[in-house]
Design a protein around this nucleic acid. Structure first.
Length: 204
DNA sequence: CCCTGATTCGC
DNA sequence: GCGAATCAGG
């Protein structure tokens, strides 16, 4: 494979979206992550735009011990507007993963009490329960940066949290790095596995 | 071990 | 220019 204009464009786009070199390589096909990284450097777009690291992937603060190049101002390349997730139909059903911690789930007695539905595209959930606003925000943030992978791409260590309506095209799995031994990424683990203590219902 | 990006250097 | 090998690190 060679670096055709199209491939370079996709590389640039993905790199600026914060995708990792390996993810980009997989997407492009025919190249390794090393090839991608090498190209990225040759293109001179090493330092990605600002914050946009994929959760686990650390931005790696590079103090740059001074190389040799005059390295001028180096204006940041115009961030391309990503057509990614526009307004989503906001479905909400979904195959419910089987979370649950050891303790008894203890059915919430009060059926009355519209608990915060936790936003729109919140799929699973053991039962109705509340999710802290912080966690919720975290989840939403993560879902924006999810890798949106397909069923076939799930591996031992990718988050298997479903996002979207399985009955539509708009369905995919989170795909971010899963917590060791867990089926989901950090953010999704936090909503999937909630200790009893955290779900104490505060009637009303 | 899994994964990241950074660098080097023969081709 | 390219990218495998290697390095450094989380």
């Amino acid at each position: 494979m060679s670096w055709t204009d199209e491939r370079v464009e996709l590389l640039k786009k993905m790199w600026q979206e914060g995708q990792s070199a390996s993810q980009i390589a997989k997407e492009l096909g025919g190249v390794t992550r090393n090839a991608v990284i090498g190209k990225v450097h040759r293109l001179g777009l090493s330092n990605r735009v600002e914050g946009a690291p994929v959760t686990a992937a650390e931005p790696a603060p590079k103090p740059e011990p001074v190389a040799e190049a005059p390295r001028a101002p180096e204006p940041a390349p115009a961030p391309r507007p990503e057509p990614v997730a526009a307004a989503r139909p906001a479905p909400q059903p979904a195959p419910a993963p089987e979370p649950r911690v050891e303790p008894a789930p203890a059915v919430v007695p009060s059926m009355r009490k519209q608990i915060v539905p936790a936003g729109q595209p919140l799929p699973p959930q053991p039962s109705l329960n509340e999710i802290s606003p912080e966690t919720l925000a975290s989840v939403r943030e993560v879902e924006k940066r999810s890798r949106k992978i397909s069923l076939m791409e799930l591996t031992e260590r990718t988050c298997k949290w479903p996002i979207g309506d399985p009955a539509t095209e708009n369905f995919y799995f989170c795909g971010l790095p899963s917590q060791p031994g867990k089926p989901y990424c950090e953010a999704h683990v936090s909503v999937a596995f909630q200790p009893m203590s955290a779900r104490r219902d505060r009637r009303r």
